[in-house]
Simulated assay, not measured.
Amino acid sequence: MTAPAWQADPYTDALRSGRGPLFLRRPDGWLLPLEVERWCAAPDAADLTVLERCRGTVLDIGCGPGRLVAALAALGRPTLGIDVSPEAVARTVRTGGSALHRSVFDPLPREGSWGTALLIDGNIGIGGDPRALLARVTQLVADDGVLLAETSPLDVDERVQVRVFDGGSAQGSAFPWARVGTPALLDYARSAGWATDEADQWMVAGRTFVALRRA
């Protein structure tokens, strides 16, 4: 059974149940586990280090089920999530956040004025072209805006076609994705208009992050 990427079974089923298993699957059979249970839970210690670095209005790109959007809203921080999955948007709204069913490459509210943009949970992979994604985010944030991105803990720079897969018989359609470690992210960011010389880098519980500012 094949369904549209991120928009129907098995991804929708996983978000509705709040649990996996769920994977991104390459054509060669390699599987990248997706941490559905963590995404559907409250922010963990690593997430909190991201939240404390947010400033101004926040745009969560690929917000998923909305744990970060809801947490920021509870703190009184003006925040909007965007996601291509209708179920992700619906779950974000149910948990108290604001979200729109949009791609980051669609026209978005307040372009050029967001204080912080988030690319967490591997979302630097959106579209399979990190340089194009980072260039798009420069159009979204203010001149003094910040990008908080989660990178792969491995030194990797990979562009692949993947499918969302439940480990059994259900999978979505193929779509482009990227995995990017911190060194590769900094290279792409530099060419896309982000300052990297004093980039804030940190690791918590095996997860790695970078904070970038406009050049």
Score class of each variant (00 low, 15 high):
T2P: 10
T2L: 15
A3D: 11
P4V: 03
A5M: 10
A8C: 05
P10R: 00
Y11D: 05
D13T: 14
A14G: 10
A14R: 08
L15R: 01
G18V: 06
P21T: 10
L24Q: 13
D28Q: 04
E35R: 12
V36L: 04
E37V: 04
C40L: 04
A41N: 14
P43F: 12
D44L: 08
A46Y: 00
R55V: 13
R55P: 06
R55Q: 14
V58P: 01
V58F: 06
V58N: 05
D60A: 01
I61A: 03
G62A: 11
C63G: 01
G64S: 08
A73R: 12
L75R: 15
G76M: 11
P78T: 00
I82S: 12
D83A: 01
D83Y: 07
V84N: 05
V89L: 11
A90Y: 06
T92W: 04
T95I: 14
G96I: 07
L100R: 06
L100N: 04
R102N: 02
V104N: 04
P109G: 00
R110A: 13
R110S: 13
G112R: 08
S113K: 12
G115F: 03
G115K: 01
T116R: 08
A117I: 03
N123V: 02
R131F: 12
L133Q: 02
L133V: 06
A135N: 07
V137S: 06
V137T: 13
D143G: 09
D143C: 02
D144R: 00
G145D: 14
G145P: 11
V146C: 12
V146P: 05
A149N: 05
E150G: 01
T151A: 09
T151W: 02
L154R: 13
D155Q: 03
D155R: 00
V156P: 01
E158K: 01
E158G: 00
R159T: 15
R159N: 13
V162G: 01
V164M: 14
V164H: 12
D166R: 02
G167D: 09
G167N: 02
S169C: 08
A170W: 09
G172R: 06
S173A: 14
S173R: 14
F175V: 03
P176G: 02
P176S: 03
R179A: 14
G181Y: 06
G181T: 04
T182Q: 08
L186Q: 12
L186H: 11
L186N: 07
A192I: 10
G193C: 09
W194D: 09
W194Y: 07
A195N: 09
D197Y: 00
A199C: 02
G206D: 08
R207P: 06
V210N: 06
R213P: 12
A215Q: 15
